[in-house]
Amino acid sequence: MHELSVVFYIIDEVKAVAAANDVSEISKVTLQLGEVSSVIPSYLKDCWKWASAKHRLLEKAELEIEPIRALTYCDDCGKIYHTLRFGKTCPNCGSGHTWLKQGQEFLIKEIECSDSN
């Protein structure tokens, strides 16, 4: 629900990295996004298209989103299962003593530069 403002944080960070590394043109920005983070990839891409076009550095930059699978750990039986499929309740033993192991990440992974440096 806050894809556009998140895009602004990403652009700020990417611009700072570009400045520190004498990058004049970025061809790709890669993110890693957990399946249960609060951000919807397709909205994020739409917002990126709109906002990145306003920066010379990012005019040609495509946004790639690598998903991180959401996994939940069960304290009672020690099994790990896919959160999107089974939610809070362990499909192996039915316990509710479970916690999210991964899947809320939201990382800027890397940028690819297309200039000649």
Binding site: Y9, I10, E13, V17, A20, F106, L107, I111, E112, C113
Partner: peptide, 29 residues
Amino acid sequence: MYVRRVRREMEEKHVRVIEIKKSVFENND
């Protein structure tokens, strides 16, 4: 910061990949 050079088969040229690996929330934190 880790900088890697990747060979693009199609374009026959090298591009720089700069690894960032940073949470979007880190600066705000």
